[in-house]
Write a protein that binds this DNA or RNA. Structure first.
Lengths: 204, 204
DNA sequence: TCCATTATGTATCGCTCGATACGGAATTAG
DNA sequence: CTAATTCCGTATCGAGCGATACATAATGGA
């Protein structure tokens, strides 16, 4: 795209990754321009604003980046061919594995990067809350699909079940940061999935 | 104590309550001295520091205040006489009721007030994390007690069960802020408690 | 070669942050 | 009364915040 002019002196893609790690670990507000510039290789403020526009614009870009990389563990929630129970269980197991992976900050950017926002930065809280609510809706639809397919009993409370699994999922982030191991969370997922009710098998 | 000198011109107890509500809603860092002073009736910086010492000291005092007021919904986790399952269920139901009560900020101060802290304010994150880990330990002991009393099967994975219920509990805060109703969360608690395994009743 | 374009480096901007200095006001003890 | 004590109001501190001004360097196209 940039066909003329002085070439950029740093790797924009790597800089975006560095920003994602900072926002992931500290959250939107505590991550300062100085931290970002430093992590991007000590670039100047001019370079920063030329490349990303503003801290807010960078954050929005980082969220999108997270969504299609580490955050893609929830993509399976949109699948309509796999068995719903398998969908939710796989999502939870992938979330646990991702959030406890030491190659990046512990926890979840979507759940934790904009919890403490001043009134002037509510946009960040809203961006992430919208992501989480979309995940809730996807879980809800999976439960509905499981009921429709005859696996969960017809009188199943779909909304309550979606609330249960969604609440457990967002809780993983806090538990992981508080020191819960991947193994412990995996076993907790197994217990949670055991509460995915199924129709009583007909007597043979 | 203060028997001489000019009397304080504001209600320190009410000011502490106002600070708790601010930290609860916005978190430690986004809550500014100006917001605090304003909420305390427009007191001067001098009055603030004379009464509370520093923002950090005030936060520590607020956490203690929260712990013995709204946060006391987890006190039952230390009970050793009630049936463990009833203890955990009651704690979850009280947490849901408290966190969705519109008379104060939605969610949980312990879970959410220090999620986004810069390196210079890690103390806040650690103070709250310690509270949460203490709750996990208490849940763990309840599960162990239920196993010892013969309700849960002897081969029950106590740590996994504690992780499950603790993770669900901290997740309530995020779900509540994302708009989950008290009723939906109550029904989710019912579903969660159904996974509290019990020994198969002996055939009669 | 000259120019338009794009990025860069340095030096700041105005603002708000948490926290203090300093003098004065209100109370009690003697 | 005076003295000691405690709190208050105003003005401001140094530091860091996000963001910008301005001149300069490096590239491609005509």
């Amino acid at each position: 795209m940039a066909r003329t002019g002085r070439p950029r002196g740093f790797d924009r893609d790597a800089a975006l990754d560095a920003a994602m790690h900072l926002f992931w670990e500290h959250g939107f507000e505590p991550t300062t321009l100085n931290m970002l510039k430093e992590a991007m290789g000590g670039i100047s403020p001019t370079s920063f604003y030329a490349a990303f526009g503003s801290k807010e614009a960078l954050f929005r870009e980082v969220v999108e980046r997270y969504r299609v990389t580490h955050g893609s563990v929830t993509d399976i929630l949109r699948d309509e061919s796999l068995p719903p129970r398998e969908v939710v269980e796989t999502c939870l197991r992938r979330s646990v594995a991702m959030q406890t992976d030491a190659s990046h900050p512990i926890g979840c950017l979507v759940t934790q990067a904009a919890t403490n926002c001043g009134p002037e930065n509510q946009f960040a809280a809203e961006v992430l809350s919208a992501e989480r609510r979309a995940n809730f809706d996807a879980i809800f639809k999976q439960v509905e699909r499981d009921i429709a397919s005859g696996h969960m009993p017809p009188d199943t409370d779909a909304h309550a079940n979606a609330t249960l699994f969604s609440t457990f999922m967002v809780g993983i982030a806090t538990s992981a940061r508080d020191g819960a191991s991947r193994e412990a969370l995996e076993r907790a997922v197994s217990l949670a999935m055991a509460s995915w009710s199924v129709c009583q098998p007909t007597e043979k």
